[in-house]
């Protein structure tokens, strides 16, 4: 059973890691559509748990060609920038957000918008919890517009990326969500 964010934050890091709900390819293939009518305010999205290591950070730097040494050169990070370690990339956190939203609204909903701040320095050894909670819903132009609060907390409860998002779910008997996505008329 899915643990609430509050429950996760009362667990030891290794216990949090065991509650990771990032889907496998087969789980994505067999995912059933969530409809607008199925959700209500306060619903928590599945939690995505990460345990970044220096190798994960290096892989991300290489993938996006980000050569900033604070992400892979420990000596530079400690002694030049006076950081506590090498730092998890803001760009990686930013790229987790659309994945997290896309997976929840799949296969036919749309991860429309997100906004967030980068507040805390994340380092290897942190266990990270990507979370989301429904804060509101509204039907517009035949689409189910759902508002979320989102964030990425460390295992000890520090919020590193407070933000919000807007996703679109189909109505149970409604038209398909347009693709390419067309924003509803306000």
């Amino acid at each position: 059973m899915s643990a609430s964010l509050e429950d996760l934050l009362n667990m030891e890091p290794e216990e949090i890691w065991k509650r990771n709900e990032r889907p496998t390819p087969d789980q994505i293939r067999s995912k059933q559509q969530i409809y607008y009518e199925d959700i209500e305010e306060g619903l928590e999205l599945p939690k995505y748990i990460y345990k970044p290591t220096p190798t994960h950070l290096f892989r991300w730097s290489a993938a996006i060609e980000n050569f900033h040494r604070i992400h892979y050169d420990l000596d530079f990070g400690l002694n030049h920038d006076k950081n506590p370690s090498i730092l998890v990339h803001g760009s990686w956190k930013q790229s987790v957000v659309p994945q997290f939203l896309k997976d929840w609204v799949a296969p036919t909903g749309w991860p429309w918008k997100a906004r967030f701040e980068h507040r805390a320095m994340l380092v290897p050894g942190d266990v990270l919890i990507m979370w989301g909670i429904v804060t509101g819903k509204e039907e517009k132009s035949g689409m189910g517009i759902v508002e979320l609060d989102i964030g990425m907390k460390t295992h000890d409860g520090v919020e590193s990326m407070p933000g919000s998002a807007t996703v679109v779910l189909p109505l149970r008997n409604g038209p398909p969500i347009p693709y390419p996505f067309v924003a509803p008329i306000s």
Binding site: W112, K113, A114, R115, E117, H118, P180
Partner: peptide, 11 residues
Amino acid sequence: LNAGNELELYR
């Protein structure tokens, strides 16, 4: 200082 990001996705 980084103040935050916004994303809007269409396709």
